[in-house]
């Protein structure tokens, strides 16, 4: 049995169904990313796991115990919000202490030691007496994380913890959060709509769309074998084209290209290309007007000597081809 189990959760706001029969399993010590477009119900799912929202149907098991109607205070979790929700009238240390006071049992010295410990963990020791407004965005984020982990919760919930930060800081904090999570071995659910974040940080990704779970699996699984066209399209780029009653899908970087026909046997006309640094993306048109894009290394692009409207030859490797039933069949 998994550490955290979500069984057939349903949630409606007014007439809108925000979660329809959502199930998920989260193992002890795992970092699971819930990934999906805006409004698909990620935050709501997280809040139900926290007990901050009550589900209309379904159940939540924590460590094998049915906790569906347990109040948040009794679930023993830590949470970090997108806005951080740091108390602006308390210092960093004060914020952390505020939660610790209610652990009971802890004496003054123990509390102080615990504050020191978590501050060291998030590398904020020298900022302990600053107020939130005196911290940078990244520091506030880490302060919120410190506050969440200080009472030694048995699981951690992060709602888009990095989305308010700029790109550089975001990348650095990914690593830091992951390192702390590993060090503590704490079961963690992190909501995000950034696919790269999910791919780099998660042990497991739960991809949601339209109030349902589309796929759950390791980053490799959801990337290499996306269960549905939505997942294929949402994570990374994907080419779709119809062939023999099915829809074929292929990642742009899997396609091989060359200047002359040979092992590459599909002709394509170049419509345009984009230089993206290490990679170059080519937009081409197959016979039959199907559009296709191909990613190659920029070095290779130089070798080929790309120019618009030129003809290229592609090889679509069968082993990387993913086949979906056609849309009409999928509906049924």
């Amino acid at each position: 049995m998994s550490y955290l189990e979500v069984r057939n959760i349903t949630k409606r706001f007014d007439r809108q169904t925000v979660l329809a029969n959502v199930s998920a399993d989260i193992e002890k010590g795992e970092l699971v990313c819930v990934l999906g477009p805006s409004g698909c119900g990620k935050t709501t799912l997280l809040r139900i796991v926290a007990g901050l929202e009550t589900a209309d149907g379904g159940s939540v098991y924590i460590n094998g115990r049915d906790c569906t109607s347990l109040s948040p205070g009794k679930r023993n979790f830590g949470i970090v919000f997108q806005s951080y929700a740091l108390f602006p009238n308390m210092t960093v240390a004060g914020n952390i202490l505020f939660g610790l006071r209610h652990k009971g049992k802890l004496g003054r010295e123990e509390m102080r030691a615990r504050v020191d410990e978590v501050l060291r963990m998030v590398d904020l020791s020298e900022h302990r007496n600053k107020y939130p407004r005196q911290l940078s965005g990244g520091q506030q984020q880490r302060a919120a994380l410190a506050r969440a982990i200080a009472p030694a919760p048995s699981y951690l919930l992060l709602d888009e913890p990095l989305s308010a930060l700029d790109a550089k800081v975001r990348v650095r904090l990914r690593g830091e959060i992951r390192a702390i999570q590993r060090a503590l071995g704490i079961t963690t659910i992190m909501v995000t709509h950034d696919q790269e974040e999910a791919l780099t940080m998660a042990d497991k990704i739960i991809v949601m769309n339209n109030a349902t779970v589309e796929q759950a699996g390791t980053p490799r699984e959801v990337y290499d074998r996306p269960a549905t066209p939505f997942v294929a399209n949402f994570i990374g780029a994907m080419n779709f084209y119809p062939a023999n009653e099915v829809v074929c899908a292929i990642r742009p970087e899997r396609i091989e290209i060359s200047n002359a026909p040979g092992s590459c046997n599909v002709a394509a006309d170049i419509k345009g290309f984009e230089f993206k640094g290490a990679m170059t993306r080519i937009y081409g048109i197959l016979p039959g007007q199907t559009e296709i894009c191909v990613d190659i290394s920029s070095d290779r692009a130089d070798e080929i000597g790309l120019c618009e409207r030129a003809r290229l030859y592609l090889r679509i490797p069968e082993e990387h081809l993913i086949k979906y039933p056609p849309p009409a069949a999928r509906v049924m």
Binding site: A50, P72, G99
Partner: peptide
């Protein structure tokens, strides 16, 4: 704030 304090049993 309310959610955070609930989670911390405040």
């Amino acid at each position: 704030f309310e959610s955070v304090s609930d989670s911390m049993r405040v």
